[in-house]
Simulated assay, not measured.
Amino acid sequence: MADLFKALADGTRRIIMDELAQRDSQTLFEICGRLAMNHGLAMSRQAVSQHLAVLEEAGLVVSRREGRYKFHHLDTGPLRAIAQRWPQSTTED
């Protein structure tokens, strides 16, 4: 679970997750373009790729290859695991 919190701690990674939530199955090139256009984040493909690797390691992004292209998908399963670990308290103050 430490990998999950490390991945979520970075604002850029959360923005990448937001972009994948809005439009799933994107290539690295598409993600870079959306970060620049929608958020003013001009990052190298290598930097975005490193962020994606951290998200993949945490289980938040899953990638699949199709020919020359690698498509990235958001997986919210690990986030549900957090919510289940610490359910909302129903006690009153």
Rank of each mutant, 00 (worst) to 15 (best):
His73Asn: 14
Glu56Arg: 06
Arg45Phe: 07
Ser25Cys: 14
Arg23Ser: 14
Met43Ala: 14
Val61Asn: 02
Ser49Ile: 00
His39Trp: 11
Glu56Asp: 04
Gln50Leu: 14
Cys32Pro: 03
Glu56Tyr: 00
Arg68Asn: 11
Met37Phe: 04
Ala21Gly: 08
Gly59Lys: 03
Val61Glu: 03
Val61Leu: 06
His72Ala: 04
Ala36His: 10
Gly59Leu: 06
Leu28Ile: 10
Met37Pro: 00
Cys32Glu: 08
Glu19Thr: 13
Gln46Thr: 11
Ala42Asn: 12
Leu52Gly: 03
Met43Pro: 00
His72Gly: 02
His51Arg: 03
Ile15Tyr: 02
Gly59Ile: 01
Val54Cys: 05
Ser63Cys: 08
Leu20Met: 09
Asp24Gln: 14
Asp18Ile: 11
Ser44Trp: 05
Phe71Gly: 09
His39Asn: 12
Glu30His: 07
Arg34Ala: 13
Leu55Asn: 02
Val54Lys: 10
Gln50Asn: 14
Leu52Ser: 02
Asp24Thr: 10
Val48Asp: 03
Leu60Met: 05
Gly33Cys: 07
Arg23Lys: 14
Leu41Met: 09
Ala47Lys: 08
Phe71Trp: 15
Ala53Asp: 09
Gln46Asn: 12
Ile31Thr: 07
Phe71Ala: 09
Arg45Asp: 13
Gln46His: 09
His72Ser: 08
Ile16Val: 15
Ser63Gly: 10
Gln26Val: 03
Leu35Asp: 01
His72Cys: 09
Asp18Glu: 15
Ile16Asp: 02
Arg64Glu: 15
Gln46Met: 07
Gln50Ile: 03
Phe29Tyr: 10
Gly40Val: 03
Glu19Asn: 05
Thr27Tyr: 10
Gln46Trp: 09
Val48Thr: 08
Ile31Gly: 05
Glu57Ser: 06
Ser49Gln: 06
Leu52Asp: 00
Arg65Pro: 04
Gly67His: 11
Glu30Pro: 03
Glu30Trp: 08
Ser49Thr: 00
Gly40His: 07
Glu56Trp: 00
Cys32Val: 04
Val61Cys: 04
Gln46Leu: 12
Asn38Thr: 00
Ala53Gly: 05
Gln46Tyr: 07
Val62Ile: 05
Ile15Ala: 11
Lys70Asn: 10
Tyr69Phe: 07
Cys32Lys: 14
Ser63His: 12
Lys70Leu: 07
Gly67Asp: 05
Ala58Val: 03
Arg34Ile: 01
Leu35Tyr: 03
Ala58Phe: 04
Met43Phe: 04
Phe71Ile: 09
Ala47Phe: 00
Leu55Glu: 01
Leu35Cys: 03
His51Trp: 01
Leu41Trp: 01
Ile15Gln: 11
Leu52Lys: 02
His72Pro: 08
His72Lys: 12
Asp18Met: 15
Phe71Glu: 07
Arg64Val: 11
Asn38His: 09
Asn38Leu: 12
Ala47Gln: 04
Gly40Gln: 04
